[in-house]
Nucleic acid binder design. Structure first.
Lengths: 291, 291
DNA sequence: TTTGTCATGGAATTTTTTTTTCATTACGCT
DNA sequence: AGCGTAATGAAAAAAAAATTCCATGACAAA
């Protein structure tokens, strides 16, 4: 529909993103970040903001077909002029080249809505308490997910494992669950993911764990898994999506927030880890040091 | 609600219009004419446009309370930024009972920011093309992830498997990869997840696949995995998080959007398969029927 | 008419920005 | 390992922009 409109700078950048070098990508990201304002300052300003040198900015300007940075900036201004005088363009749209009804935009709306209503419900006290439970090195942490949420459990396990010992991922094959339960001790923590359609096996596992005085934490959907009856703490997330399936995005969000909470709870250890990470990045030379 | 907002430059000019001299009025008119773009060029440019001298411009800037012209221009830019950006207010307090600095709120901000800048960059054409590739029943779809992203690959696999046949999840153990490659045919699709630090094994796998004329699709971070050089389509997601780790939330978002795309592309078949699955689950009594 | 004030822009000066040059380093390829 | 290409930023050089200085002229009041 908008086929023959001449490409604006953002599009030009995006279309050539693949050909850009590391430094140029950093730059491109900053420029696109709050487009086009960030490109309107001085070359020095944007270079600093992107943590690249000014020559890099000039080179990219040329790569994009301009004679120099000022010419690029002029293009930006005239683009802006065109945009501003056109009131329609102010419309909120996530993927700006896609129509409102495009699945990307609909999904984005749904996710925002999910996040909003999930966060409204979450009690920070619960969150903090759970973080504390997960940080406690005196007790093991077990994690289990359902058919859909098993990936989330895996993700959680992956990260937790790096931060502390005594973390186990209860395999999705429920035949083996009794073995896992056998290894759970009183005071241990079991994090259960269970969204609709709630899995009966998980409920049974929860009961078994509870019987062994394991502390249960539940991450479920807004309707609530029956496991909630046995859980010390439950998180109810909203998982609506414009799809036949539910969206796990907010669940992952919560998982990551929890991980970060645990990370912060043991800052010293985390800091050491961050340094290691930094060194690794240096080794790969793909990244500049951040900040 | 915007009662005590500080006046923008245009208002400042208008309110002092009476005190301006002839040359300054000329200048003011030009500045207001297509506000604020005309003020964004160099001092010479606007002076010429207004047919006044550059000193006049400086003098007016000072009259308006700035230290000099550059300062005025900076004000203009930040004003513009405030106007143009942000479909969603930048620092909404998401979890309302928690302080702004609580990890939940900080994470929420980061995720929104990631989503915004990711979606800005995604080309809907690419998205549609990829959906089509993934929907094509004539070719198999393989999916592989890295250390962190393996969960995302798994999630994708889980859902795709329900919708169509010929989907394989290349196991994370790279020893077995040659085996998988052996089974790839020309025209097959390989979806690769690779975020920093990029895994060399994935690059090798990509090369091998490419050599077999497999179509590569890449989901990577904003800096771009080297796999991009071999990929037909790449998605660059933003993964910044207030944490030692990166956030995969937006990656999951993209995965779900793709899944939904595929679902829509072949709704009849998807529906039929889901029904069958439903029956199978019923048989195994693993799930309660959910309306 | 004279005088003082003020607006104004030309030109000099200073400051900043932009571009170019160049040395270093990384990385792919043989 | 060695070579060549490419990326990169520090620093020098060039260009442009911003500011200051100052001469001119308009106008008003004495």
């Amino acid at each position: 529909m908008e086929s023959s409109r001449e490409p604006n700078l953002a599009e030009r950048i995006r279309s050539r993103f693949g050909n850009l070098t590391r430094a140029e990508r950093q730059l491109a990201n900053v420029m696109l970040e709050n487009y086009p304002v960030s490109g309107l300052g001085s070359i020095t300003a944007i270079a600093t903001r992107s943590a690249v040198s000014t020559p890099t900015v000039v080179r990219m300007a040329k790569k994009l077909g301009f004679k120099g940075f000022p010419e690029l900036q002029a293009a930006l201004r005239s683009e802006l002029e065109a945009t501003i005088s056109n009131p329609i363009s102010k419309h909120e749209r996530w993927a700006q080249k896609a129509p409102d009804t495009h699945i990307l935009n609909r999904f984005a709306d749904a996710v925002i809505e999910n996040m909003r209503s999930t966060l409204k419900q979450i009690d920070p006290e619960t969150f903090n308490a759970v973080v504390e439970l997960l940080s406690d090195r005196d007790h093991a942490v077990h994690v289990v997910g359902g058919r859909i949420t098993n990936s989330m459990a895996g993700y959680f396990f992956n990260h937790m494992q790096v931060m502390r010992s005594g973390v186990t991922h209860v395999a999705s094959n429920s035949n083996t669950w009794p073995h896992y339960v056998l290894n759970m001790k009183a005071g241990d923590v079991l994090l259960v993911f269970d969204i609709r359609r709630y899995e009966h096996n998980l409920l049974r596992l929860a009961k078994m764990a509870k019987a062994k005085e394991v502390t249960l934490i539940l991450i479920t959907d807004q309707w609530g898994s029956p496991v909630a009856n046995f859980a010390s703490h439950s998180f109810y997330t909203r998982i609506m999506a414009p799809s036949a399936w539910d969206s796990s995005v907010i669940i992952l969000f919560l998982v990551e927030a929890l991980i970060t909470g645990v990370e912060n709870a043991n800052w010293d250890e985390t800091k050491a880890r961050m340094n290691t990470l930094e060194e690794l990045f240096d080794q790969t030379k793909m990244f500049k040091k951040f900040r």
